[in-house]
Each structure stands twice: as structure tokens, then as C-alpha cells.
Amino acid sequence: MDPFANVPSSVGAAEVRALQGALQGFLEATSAHWVALCDRAGNLLFHEGKDPGSDVAILCALAAGSFAASRELARRLGTNEFAEQVHEGEGLRILLHSLDTETLLVVVFQHSTSIGLVRYYAAKLANEVTGMVEEIARAGAIAFGQLPPIELDPARPLLS
């Protein structure tokens, strides 16, 4: 019997589509390469755009680490956390933007893209998606809680 029989499969799907649409709109407006939302613990939430050329889970872990380090730096200097960071490489720039106390926006873009434009649309995107991220997480947690237990084979390790 399908363990999902009594649970709607579409929980959060409309919100996810709306959020992905907002991320795609951001990429079109800015010509940025790649955009992701991750939480402050480094978990990847959503991403859109061209393959950034590296494992996205690693990129998010590093982005969250970088942001956490700068926040601690700010705290020790007696100021508020830096709401935004831009790292400039030879070919690429990375913008880290704090959406709220839990979520970060990570944008990878080329030098040919105006940083002001990326900043402007990042702030706009932040207003647009903050509620969506919370709603998707909340709906997902509730729906997941209604699922039957995951059955694990005691004789078989999860990871091997």
C-alpha cells in the first residue's frame, strides 16, 4: 500500500513554483548566473540558474560559514551584522544578502553585470520571497509529520 495514499502530494508545490518563478525572474532581470536560498545553518533551500560549476551543497555551506564569520566580526566590533557581502574574483562576483534571521540569498554573477542592479533586485527579491520560504517550510513540516514512519531495515546500514 502506498504510504502517501492519504497525504496530498502537492503540499507546498504551488508555493515552490511561485518561489522558483521569483528566482527565475531575478536571474532574467539581473543577468546573474546563479541564485540560491540557503539557511544560516548552511542547508540549501532552493536554487535556479546555470550550473555554478561546483556542488551547490558545498557552496551553501561555505556561504553560510562566510556570513556567520562576518556576523561574529561585526558583533565583536560592536555593530549590527553586515546585511550584505560582496566577494570579487577576477571573473566572478558573489553577493550574500541576508533575507531575514534564518535565510540567506546567494548570487553568482559576472563583472559585466552591474552590482547596483543585483543589489536592487536582491532587496526586491528578499521582500517577495521571505513569506514564501517560511510557508513552504511550515507546510512541509506539517505534511511530513502526518506521514507514516519511514521503515528502515535494521540489518542494513543507512550509509555504506
Binding site: 507546498g12 545553518a41 542547508n43 513552504i136 517550510a137 507546510a139 505534511a143
Partner: peptide, 15 residues
């Protein structure tokens, strides 16, 4: 906290 993405059927857990 665990992040459960129900629509994409993924759970992320930090150890």
C-alpha cells in the same frame, strides 16, 4: 533544525 522540503521530497540534517 532539520529542513524538510516536502515538495521536492528532501530532508536535510546537519551533523
Amino acid at each position: 533544525m532539520a529542513y524538510i522540503n516536502y515538495a521536492q521530497r528532501e530532508i536535510q540534517l546537519k551533523v
